[in-house]
Design a protein around this nucleic acid. Structure first.
Lengths: 184, 184
DNA sequence: CCGAAAATGTTAGTGTCTAACATAAGGTCT
DNA sequence: AGACCTTATGTTAGACACTAACATTTTCGG
């Protein structure tokens, strides 16, 4: 394990603690760096922006693949939802509660919610692309991708502030809401 | 018409032109202010942030009301979609092409897409609240609200970059995609 | 025309983030 | 172990978005 990874780890953990204690906006990058024993510049060498300490998800490719693996012929929304469901079943329940702590910060900070969405938009693009490749028109493809990802994101945010219901349940409920939404 | 409104108008128009010509990120607030014949400070007196020159929508309340007016008893997603459809029918087709020009900028600037989402989150909250008031559980309510608004937003973005199909068509297509998504 | 209120200007500062260059720390090979 | 190269970190300087406090001008009703 290189020195770089250790520093990165230390910065991420230190930042999370400070955010929890005094809020995201009230915490300066200088404080994080000092508390981790490095300089401000070093922080930006490891994370391109302050908020990026909270966003490290390699799920994008996984989701796009799962969408591609969905059976063709059904409606875009159904394919997208099915893909998300399958991708979800392959990912282990989040490791520790680090994910929850991070999302909790995001949920409580408006500017970070915006960042989360921006983060999602790459995934959204990949999913929509897959749907188009499978015969959907561009607009329905994008609408379906956006809707499904928004629902899952909503589930994630809701889960983070709740007590300790499993994340899997929240995600499934959200998917059922969009997918089976037409009939009661 | 007070002087304040005239200055605000001038700033918004000047900003839009500069954004179109050289991009949002490449345009500084100082440039906008100078081109409009005022100071940087004056800009921030009229708009709390640089990106806010592009976001002036008073639709929130309208949408929430329309959702509230939906017939009870059906699924959250259907109520939300119906509300959006109804709200849409009450709003006149966008005035000039100023809306399109603005959204086009947003569509082409990742950080602004994030801001757009953050802007939507208030509307999302109101819609979800209405759904809960009408008997839905919190999570399905939030998922439905997020999904429907995300779909409409996707339609808006797609419309802005397209040639000149009517915005109404795009919105209806997006709503049909989420609402009738279960069956093909 | 006068005076209060609103609009704008000035100055100074904080915080995020970038770029260029300088130093230190790590490991490799002989 | 010691020279050597790579990688991690430090330093300095600066652009830009935004805020706060105070000064100045402009507008407008009486």
């Amino acid at each position: 394990m290189g020195k770089s990874e250790r520093t990165r780890e230390r910065l991420a953990e230190t930042a999370l603690e400070l955010f929890e204690r005094q809020g995201f906006e009230q915490t300066t990058v200088g404080q994080i760096a000092a508390a981790a024993g490095v300089t401000e510049m070093t922080f930006f060498r490891h994370f391109p922006a302050k908020h990026q300490v909270l966003f490290e998800d390699p799920y994008d490719a996984l989701i796009a693949d799962a969408v591609a693996a969905q059976p063709g012929g059904s409606a875009p929304l159904r394919r997208a939802a099915g893909g998300l469901r399958q991708a979800w079943s392959r990912v282990p329940e989040p490791d520790g509660d680090v994910v929850r702590r991070r999302v909790r910060i995001v949920a409580g900070t408006p500017s970070l919610r915006g960042e989360m969405w921006r983060n999602n938009s790459e995934t959204e693009r990949l999913v929509a692309e897959q749907l188009v490749r499978d015969g959907a028109r561009p607009l329905p493809a994008k609408a379906a991708a956006a809707a499904v990802l928004a629902a899952v994101t909503a589930a994630l945010l809701e889960w983070s502030v709740g007590e300790d219901a499993p994340l899997g349940d929240a995600v499934l409920t959200a998917l059922e809401t969009v997918e089976g939404g037409g009939n009661e």
